[in-house]
Every structure is written in C-alpha cells, then in structure tokens.
Amino acid sequence: MTESTVIEVEHLSRLFGKFRAVDDISFSVTRGEIFGFLGANGAGKTTTIRILCGLLSPTSGKGRVLDIDIGKAPERVKPLLGYMSQKFSLYPDLTVSENLELYGGLYGLSSSRLAQRRAFAVEMAGLVGQEAVLCATLPLGFKQRLALGAALLHEPKLLFLDEPTAGVAPRARREFWTLIRSLASSGTTVFVTSHYMDEVENCDRIVLMSRGRIAALGTPTELKQGLVGRIVRIECGQEPARLARRLRAHEGVVDAQPFGSAIHLIVAPGLDPINHARKALAALEEQPRSVEVCQPTLEDVFISVVSGVAR
C-alpha cells in the first residue's frame, strides 16, 4: 500500500447463505480520485460499500481503508469516512438545521466546530436562509446536497456515495457533480455509484460489476476503446422501437436500441459494422435513410460488457 492508496481490496468476498453477493474482487483507489463503482442491479455495489465502511464483515479476503484493516478493526474506520446511503439519510420531520445538528452530534463535533461546519454544509447545499425549513418539503436535488453536506460535517478524507443522484432532475444532477468534482480536486477521495451513464463520464476510473465480480476496470476512455468502430447509427424514420427489436434477433448484433428517430446498433467484434448492419437491414427488407459509424458512449459499454457477462 503506497502512501497515496486510500482503499486496497484483495480477493474480497461476501456470501449470504450460499449466495455470493461479492465474489473475489480486487482493486485499489488513490487519493483524490473519483472512483465510479457501476453495475447491474444486485451486482454487489452496496454490499461492497457496506464492507468498506465497516458496517458488514467480509466472508473472506482483505480490505484496507485509510490504512486500517477492515477485517480486524471495522469500528476504527467508521468515524474517518463520510457515507451517503442508497436509502434516505435525512429525517424528513426535522428542519435543515436540526438534521445537521443531529449528524454533528453523532460525529462528536464540539459546539463551536459544529456551528462552523453547519454553516459550511448549509452554504454548500445552497440552503442559506432556509435553515428552518422541514426537510420533507425540500426538492430532491436539495435534499441530496444537504445529505452530502451532512456526510462531510466531520471533514472526512474519503466519501462513499451510494446512488446520490437517483431520481434527481438534470439541472440539479449537474450541480451535484460540480460539488463532487470540487471535493475531489481539494483532495477528498470519492467512491460513487450511479446508474446514469452520462454523469459517470466525470469519474477518473470506473469499475463495472456483474454478479459480484469485476467485469471491467479502467478510465472512461479506456473502457470505450473496445467499442470504437463497432457502433452504427441507423436513421430509419418510422418506428425505430419495433425495428430495433427485430434487429436484436439478428446474428452478430449484440444490441440494437431506439434513440429518438434513430437506432444504435452494436455489432459483434471482428465484423465490418456498416456491411453487417446493411446485411441485417436487407434481411428484414428495411431501407434506412442512413447508416453510419458513431462514437461509443459509456452506456454502450455498460450494455455490451454486462450483458456479455450475464448471457
């Protein structure tokens, strides 16, 4: 473990009965990184986070978080990190201020430090002047920013965010990621899960989990590399959803999805994409307006990697 390594995981597994929720994963995270932890529902993301936060014990394998062995001293790691859980973490019937005081108390902050940190959190959440508002009535985007503020009260060096933007509208999501980026640039390490493939472009590195295992790991650019030249955009005008469904059944087509009036088609590796798309269309007696190769997105990567492993 080098000085800049914040998380180091080796052959970590967690079973529930006979079910392997986390199955022999290894990776490490360095200081100041935004580390995206992605994967299908049930892939083991939350379970991994709970282990790394010292809330759940691993069945086997090793994990060091901020230089502490989580198998041996999980209670020592808890106060050092910030954690926003996938389920709601604020009390709806308390005000903005009361929620922060409650968390500050849990972290054992002195009253002068709490006052100072509370002011920081309110400001960061964009809720100055709204300290007396009940959390239940805040729009979701603000609730999530406040929950982030609460997780940062004790100035942790490492932050776990489990789907912090689920259900948040586009503008508020962009603002949330601006906060994440500024935290990371000031040296906080951010471990984050999300099902929005557009926002995870902001991550420095990404893990793609599937069925408890790591199916891919790399920077967004590295992950997309494998699909360059394999994605075809078909302008078809009429009923893209129906045509996409029929194309999906065609051999050599990994996936076909409607995007507005067009279709994105992923061809199997080694095939000439345009030729193959044209062949598939001809077999269905369809005449598209245009067929061209396009740039892969992380969503394309997710679909091809995760469904490739699952099927």
Binding site: G39, A40, N41, A43, Q86, E163, A166, G167, H195, M197, A241, R242, R245, Q257, E299, F302, I303, V306, S307, A310
Partner: peptide, 20 residues
C-alpha cells in the same frame, strides 16, 4: 411515478420494450 430510479441501464431498456 419515476419507476426506473435506481434501475440499471439494461433493465431500463427491457422495461421500455415491455411498455411498448
């Protein structure tokens, strides 16, 4: 009401195909 919050991209696609 926001049926796909927290649902992964693969399942979201399946769901939309089913809605169709």
């Amino acid at each position: 009401d926001e049926p796909t919050n927290g649902v992964d991209p693969i399942s979201r696609r399946e769901l939309w195909a089913f809605l169709r």
